[in-house]
Amino acid sequence: MNPRLAAAFVTGLAVPMLAAMAALPRHGSPDQPIHTHVAREYIESGPETGNLVTAILLDYRGMDTFGEVVVIFVGLVAVLVLARHREPALPAASPSPIVAFIVRLVTPFIALFGFHVILSGLEVPGGGLQGAAILGGLVILNGFVFGPQHARSLLPGRLLPWLQGAGPLAFLAAGIVGGIATGFALGYPTHLPLLHEAMLMGVELGIGIGGALIFSRLYLALEDA
């Protein structure tokens, strides 16, 4: 690309952005909208029980979170494409029997804890991304100890391409179901509490499983490169 054109393009983008930044309320100032009325409004009209953070992320600003999830998943998939493997992974050096035993011992507990964090995000701090990191870390741990081949065998084979996109897909499904139930895309049917909860859980599970698979694939791609 022509460097002058690039410079002009960047300047043209930067000037309005800086102008917008200057018009924002000063960082930490007490008359920011979030301090004057937005936060209070969220807390007052939020759900009686459950995790307010999850309610805001998936409900009040569900569209924004949908966009975020799509951007993050597309970014990670792009990294995966760039890091696609060239030579087969090395087999692991024979693991210490002690470490192997302990890792086998804790693996089911960590997996259970990961799913617990994903699903309990509706009630207590937690959620899809945190659980995804725990599950992905579990796969990476197994890869460290037993070798990448073993870690790969932990992932689902044929369903992998679909499950990798589970985050955006689950969000899309929740949006369509919500659209049918309420007439608004990503509207949550508050008059059907069971369906409402199922939709939130589906979105969390999608983000969790999809994120965990992407973290694991990222690790495997690095090991193979």
Binding site: S96, I98, V99, I102, L105, V106
Partner: peptide, 16 residues
């Protein structure tokens, strides 16, 4: 309990 099993395992792995 987790620390009781994870701590010695990690030190063993390091030393090995």
């Amino acid at each position: 309990i987790l620390i009781l099993i994870a701590g010695p395992t990690a030190s063993h792995a390091l030393a090995r």
